[in-house]
Structures are given as C-alpha cells and as structure tokens.
Design a protein around this nucleic acid. Structure first.
Lengths: 337, 337
DNA sequence: CTGAAAGCGCTTACAG
DNA sequence: CTGAAAGCGCTTACAG
C-alpha cells in the first residue's frame, strides 16, 4: 500500500514546519502570518501530492470525530431504513458520518452498541430506545454526551426527543372508525412499557371511552420476538370470542404486516368482515386487495429534526428540545373508502 | 463532560508506566514480564476506574480502525437494508464497525463517499458499484485497499465480488413462463451498462432464442431516476404495440414494485391478461391480489460472504474471490400458480 | 528480561 | 507577528 501523504511530506518539500502547512490548509493563515508566495506553494504541493488529511489523527487531537452513532431497532425494517437514510443525508450535509447499529429492541445489544460507539468517540447519539435501557441512556446524559431520542422517549429521563403524537394518532384512528359505524374496535399492540406504545394504547382507550365504547375495548399485546406466532393466535381468539371485533387498528408497521398475513390466512374479508387501520406507509398496504387506511408518520421531518437538534447539542446547546410531530390519517378502502 | 479515563490515569495510580498497563490490559504480559500482584493491581484499578480504551488513539497508532465502509445504492431500499443488516451483524461478530453510505446509483456521490471513508481510514470497503465509477474503485485497488464488490461487479477490474447468477435467474424465469404457455414475454430493465443488468438481459434474450421466440423479444430499459414516469409510459406502449406481451419479467425489486403500481393503474389482470415475475422477495408481492412468482436472492449468504471475503483481504489475503450465488425461482399465482 | 521513549498525524497554546 | 514544541491516547521496537 503506497504510504499516505502527510502534513510532514508537504512541509519537507516546501521547507516549512508542519504547523504552518496545517494553518494554511485549514484557511487560518490570516494572510499576514505568512507570505502569499509560501501559501501558494503549500497549496500547490498539497495538490500535487494529493494530500488528504487523516481524520483519525485530527479526531484524536481535536477530541471530536464528526461522527454520529445511530441506534435503531432494525435497519432492515423499512421504517428505520428510511429514517437512517434521512439521518445519513442530513448528517452528511454538515460533514458528519453516521455509524448505525440495530438493537433488535434488546437492551443488552443496545448497551453493547452504545459502548462500541463510545469507544469510537462518537460526538453524539440518535437512539431509538429499547425497553428497560434507561440506565445506559441515563449514563450518556450524565456524562453530558449529546443524545437525541427518536420515535420514542423515556419519560423518566430529561433528554431531547422527536416523536409522533402517538396519542392523537390512535385517537383519530378510532374516531374515524366510529364515524364509519364500527363499534367493536380492537387494538393490536406490543407488550411494552415504552411510552410510544403506551400512548398509542391510551389514545385508543380514551377515544373508545369518549365514544362510550369502553365495554368494547380489546387490546392484544404481543411479544416483539414472537409476533408471528402470537398474532395468528390473537386473531383466532378475537374471532372466537364473544364480542368479535368489526375493526382492528395495528399500532406499528411490523404489526400491520404480520396482521395482514394473519387476516389473509384466516380468509377474513376487509372491510366487510373487518375494517383495518395500519401504521406507517408501506407498499404492501397499497397492494392488499383492500388498500389500507393508515397512520402516516412524517419520517423525513423526524430524521431531519433529530439531526438538527443533535448537532445543536454537539455545538454546545444545553437545552433539551422535545418535539411531537403530527401524524396524518390516510383514508382508503380498508375502512370503507 | 467528565474526562475519560486514560492509560496514564491507571499508570499513575498503580505507579507503573503506561506501557506496562497497555501490555497487561491487552493480555500481552507474557506473565513473566511482570509480577502477578502488579498484573492484578492493574486489572483492579482499570476496573475501578471503568477504563475504556480510546479506539481513535489505538487506530492512529496501529494504522487500522476495525471499520468497514459499506456503500449501497440506497439504504432505504429493503434489499439494501437487509443486506446492510447482515453486514452489520457479521462485521460485529469480528469486532468491526460499519459505516454506511447511499450512492443513489450516482457516481459523484459514490466517489465522495469513498473519499470520506478513506479519510476516516476504513480498513476496507464493501461496495455496490454504480455505473461508470470504475475509476474510483480502480484507485482503491491500486492503493491495495481491500474491497469487495457486491450485487454487481466491474468486469474490467480484477476485484473480489459476490453476485447472483443473474444470467441463470432470468433464463429460468423465461423457461418457466414458456413452460406455462406464455410466448410474448417482455423484460423490464434499467438502462445500464452494469454487468448484473446486462446479464439479466442476456439471460432473458438467450432463453427467448433457445425457445425460438426471438421475434417476441421486447426489452424496456428505464432510467433509474425516472422509473415512475417511464414505467407508466412503457406499460402503455407495450399494450398499444402490435405484439402485446402476455407476460413480463421485472429485473429488480424496485422495478417490480413500480411495475405493480402501473399494472394496477392500467387495470391489467394478472395472470389472465398478463403473467408477472418479480425480483427479490417483498411483502408487497405477497399481498398483490395475484401473489407474485419471483426470483429470490440469497441476501444473507451474499452479506455474510462479502464480509468474510473482505476480512480475509484485510488480514492480508491477496487472492481475489469471485462468487456467483444461486437464485431460486419461487412459483406462485402470478404465473398461473 | 524490563520499561522508558518514540511515534502514529494532526492542531494550537505559547514561548520567543 | 511567527513557528517550533507539546500533546491527544495509545502501541511496540528497542535500548539498557
């Protein structure tokens, strides 16, 4: 491997110190400090030698790496893939690089990713927090390492975060179904104490109560790691029960997809046997024979804002910015057109 | 921010040199070199102080970063998201971190990502090469920087790569359609000189010829940046033409999805008006009213192999490993069940 | 056998 | 005003 060109190589060739080369190449010569012909010569030689600064050395010296650590639940999940793409683009505009890790909603993996990224001296974190990982994130906060939570937040912790108006999203979903004449509305959720899930559940429950449907409340809470098995079971049970639902709301993208497979297997007709509302956009929603009404999240805004807020913190802002973004309910055939 | 603990802090506390601490903590004390009580004490203090090595300093010193640069077309595309996830997991097992960039099939962006990653001293690259970027990748090869191409390769360059048997994939797709009685089979492709696309086109063409259907060959080549517009146009034209196709093969995941939207808009009935074969698995394929027959790629193997081959190169192997993985044709209703 | 000293490639406080 | 020297936090060749 041909050795990389360093500041020293340029300095030797021009006959000045590396310090001066560094000043010039970083545009800090302040003109007066050095003759214009030397500046020109340094630039020339740097160009000829195709000099590229070694960011690792610079990072060590400056104590910052221009790197953001992004931890999502699973980069293969389209919602997080899209989010990661926005983060990548936004960070890139500001000369930051992103390293990405998938936690699988698992606390041990999250902790290990945080540690790895910390060892690599990331300047800040954007994290989709998993259940029960408060401690790991709290320790970042205590160390005053910039961190922005996204998609969910931890109410016990005082951090910046960007989330959806989860309560409003499911509340509106119920309201829409009620307006369409549905009454036995079930919610499919994850078994999770995380606030985004609790808020989606609360939005559903409150809306049901406000519509005097509390006796029809049915919530199926599934385990993240056993969704496929449990959703089949859950759908069967809902249908064998006494108050068979006439509508279902899925509270995440992945649950929606799994739910659609279950409905397909059970040959349940949408919206005749049952109306359906999904979460997040998804191509599969469009090609389901009865295109899905769904709760749309502003992923782009979510990604952009999280980068913006994080960079502010990296630049020194001590303010916690807590943003709730608005959903949009996209109406289609699965709730009666 | 509480200052990080460094080797020096431990050394001071124990009363030895940082060198010794480094040896001990890296398990290189060779026992004899230092008394067991000192080893114990160093380990103790490191634990008490919660010492974490600074990887940036280590990287600068060692000249390697344990970081892989992964460049895909678009991390938000599920195919690349899944690939990235495999790469992340495999790399993690070997203590490597992955930085990801999306090129949008654009040469300028690819070049800029390569440069950024190079400045950050990645130990090697896994790249989905874009059209016309031979020069950038060639320069990596010339600098003897480990690089593995994935999904596609550049025949002019001698590098390692992991790709699909693209020729075989479309060849079998045609064969299957012919066996089902279809004759006017069209191919929807990208306008691209990249070898994976050319091979898919060649597989289609050869299979058509081998089945004496050369007069029915119809290939629509679309621009990556204008797929949505052009596919509508393309589908319309195919249907207005003299030899209206009775079957279509889509040659990528994204083309398949766009194609399904077009078919839906044009109210073309699958498989009665037209049989369809998609590329890659996709949830949307399952929920299309006529579930799609598709060419399945072994994404997991592709990701694992690319990491394995890259790490071999990083460890010094000079051998170029060129692997063609087998597709599987998954038969479903869109080609007649 | 042992451990202090040099050095990776930068940046910038500070001595002259 | 100028630029040499110190130092970021490690690792390891090498002098003793």
């Amino acid at each position: 491997m041909s050795k990389r060109v360093s500041l020293k190589d340029i300095a030797n060739k021009v006959g000045v110190s590396t310090a001066l080369v560094s000043y010039v190449l970083n545009g800090l010569e302040k003109e007066k400090r050095v003759g214009p012909e030397v500046v020109k010569r340094i630039r020339e030689v740097a160009g000829d030698l195709n000099y590229k600064p070694n960011q690792i050395a610079r990072s060590l010296r400056k104590g910052s790496t221009n790197t953001i650590g992004l931890i999502v639940a699973d980069i293969a999940n389209p919602f997080f893939g899209q989010l990661a793409r926005i983060v990548e683009d936004e960070a890139g505009k500001h000369n930051y690089t992103v390293i990405i890790g998938s936690s699988d909603e698992n606390c041990v993996k999250s902790a290990s990713l945080i540690e790895t990224f910390l060892d690599r001296q990331v300047d800040g974190f954007i994290i989709v927090p998993s259940e029960g990982c408060n401690q790991e994130i709290e320790s970042l906060v205590n160390k005053e390492i910039p961190v922005v939570l996204v998609d969910r937040f931890l109410p016990e912790l005082s951090t910046s975060y960007i989330v959806l108006d989860n309560f409003g999203a499911t509340y509106e979903a119920v309201t829409h179904l009620v307006a369409k004449g549905y009454k036995n509305i079930a919610l499919i959720a994850y078994k999770s104490s995380l606030v985004h899930m609790q808020e989606r559940i609360r939005g559903y429950s409150e809306a049901m109560k406000d519509n005097h449907l509390e006796q029809a409340i049915q919530i199926k809470e599934l385990s993240y790691n056993r969704v496929k098995e449990e959703i089949e079971e859950g759908v069967s049970k809902l249908f064998d029960g006494n108050n068979k639902p006439d509508a279902m709301i899925f509270s995440t993208n992945a649950l929606s997809i799994s739910g659609l497979y279950a409905l397909k297997n059970h040959k349940i007709r949408v919206p005749d046997d049952m109306a359906i509302i999904g979460f997040d956009g998804n191509e599969a929603f469009d090609f389901f024979y009865s295109p899905l009404t769904f709760i749309e999240q502003p992923i782009e805004e979510m990604g952009k804002e999280s980068v913006r807020v994080l960079l502010d913190q990296i630049k020194g802002s001590k303010e916690n910015v807590q943003i709730e973004l608005n959903h949009r309910l996209i109406l289609r055939e699965s709730t009666g057109g």
